[in-house]
Design a protein around this nucleic acid. Sequence first.
RNA 1: GGCGCAUUCGUCUAGAGGCCCAGGACACCUCCCUCUCAAGGAGGAGACCAGGGGUUCGAAUCCCCUAUGCGCUACCA
Length: 480
Amino acid sequence: MPEEIRLRIAPSPTGDPHVGTAYMSLFDRAFAHHRGGKFVLRIEDTDQARYNEGSVQEIINSLQWLGITPDEGPGIGGEYGPYVQTQRRELYSEHAEMLIKSGHAYRCFCTRERLAELHREQAGRKEPSRYDRHCLDLSEKEIEANLAEGKPYVVRLQTPDEGTTSFTDLIRGEITFENRVLDDTILVKSDGLPVYHLAVVVDDHFMKISHVVRGEEWISSTPIHVLLYDAFGWKTPHFAHMPLMRNADRSKISKRKNNTSIKWYREQGFLPEAMINFLALMGWSMPNGEEIFIYSDIEREFTFERVTTSGPVFDLVKLTSINGKYIRALSNDELYDRLLPYLPQGMDLDRVRLVVPVIKDRLTRLGEFEELTAYLFGPPPDYDASTLVPKKGTPKSARTALQRTRDLLENLPEPWTHEKWEGGMRALATDLGIKAGDLFMVLRVAVTGSTMSPPLFESIEILGKEETLGRLDRAIAKLG
RNA sequence: GGCGCAUUCGUCUAGAGGCCCAGGACACCUCCCUCUCAAGGAGGAGACCAGGGGUUCGAAUCCCCUAUGCGCUACCA
């Protein structure tokens, strides 16, 4: 029987949904579906101190927005639930108990103070910081007495003193650790909740996870996990440690140096398909070298062999560039629909529809629309009268140019469409003895309030006759 | 400090012994197009493949060493 392919993303609900979660989810889902398997969401909320209410829903929403939804998970269902660790605590306690019975783990009653002291001493001697097994050989009687006294305790894994533990990483090959450098890691905290290492192994086993895909940061603790699988007599899953996305200084991507919240990208108006494309490019490439592709392409082509080993720097500039490409590829109707959530209340939607085609090539994020087109929905920004005057012109010549254009526009026959104006304006420029470009620049400033703007004639058309003439009048007045 | 992972243009990467005096993309520069800004098109600059040793007729590609970066080293994940 072929192996059932099941991958999971296991975020901790500790804050805003993180791009790293999206990054891992993307590859988890792509690989799982590539092989006809399932992508599972599991919430690792055993750290109650950092727990954040609402975070779970936001993670789900973010994955949904990106189009990389889980097949199983909290609120979604599936036959291996519950998918929230705090709802599985019985399981962990039972298994910790099993490990104690089988001699693979032991209770440790050491106080935090003693451990802190131990660490200090070891640091002073420049030794690696490891538990000294003070509680390893406690007698039955001592343990009973401590328990009867209600002394808090943790459960520790007893790691072997000799030999090595190794595993094969799908991206990096075989990785080996000396067992003697392994610490007797805490498996169950004194609050009775498991630590990541125990919970992840137990859950991955019972949820039938075939491939553990996670960040590179977990490589060091994988031997602990392998030891646990062995202790339970379970088959180890495949492991793949993805490279870590980095800040510009190459440190692990962080909130301080990057926008790590998926919500932020959504609010800015990055398209989900651009995000996916960009994230996929971080550490992975298409076999045919294509750099613009959609999720289904990734799903079709994904293999771990094509994942890079070194951590890519997260480059917002490149993301923005890809986003622009996706925006330009949208039809006008589609772009209009996508823009709606980014528009302020009460915006003239009929006008928005007219503006979409002229702004499309200039948008890099949907969130820019309002700012870029403000002059088409309200008064143009205030500008200095001197801006109206071309380099080689004078206030007087600018004034004349504006006045003549005003007359021209005022007497134009209906309908008010821009295609037929340009000839007349060019003729006017000739008549005035100035370059057409200079004339257009004077008008641009008068109409848009800026020397840089979307196309002038389309803008005039969208604004309408009355508004345009008004702006020309105001410009003329500015020039005295 | 210990252990581990990594190291090709500024950045993302292609490259799995000869096709590479290293290809593409983003950014940058120039030109074209053009009413400005964009978009688009055409060029350009940019990597002695971290360094040093091997192996080989031949290495970015295999091996070793060094350096550097990063990660882990919590009753966080």
